[in-house]
């Protein structure tokens, strides 16, 4: 079973993925990265691995593996 992988060190917290997620599975985690950005987290129970977040992310945070 594939799963959404999040590379948090790359995330800049723009929120595009949260806007585009059809299942509202993504949200801000409150964890601040080394660069000072609020990073995203996924609720695996809601995620359907559609890849929408991958397609809009400018910082290559997501992969489905």
């Amino acid at each position: 079973m594939s799963k959404l992988q999040i590379e948090k060190t790359r995330c800049k917290g723009c929120g595009y993925c949260i806007e585009v997620c059809p299942k509202k599975a993504l949200s801000f985690s409150g964890e601040i990265s080394d660069q000072g950005y609020d990073t995203v987290k996924v609720d695996d129970a809601l995620c359907i691995q559609c890849g929408a977040c991958y397609r809009v992310c400018p910082d290559y945070v997501f992969e489905i593996i």
Partner: peptide, 14 residues
């Protein structure tokens, strides 16, 4: 669901 991977040519975020 099919895997979605970054292109091999992408090394890191900018």
């Amino acid at each position: 669901m099919a895997e979605v991977r970054l292109p091999k040519r992408i090394m890191n975020s900018g």
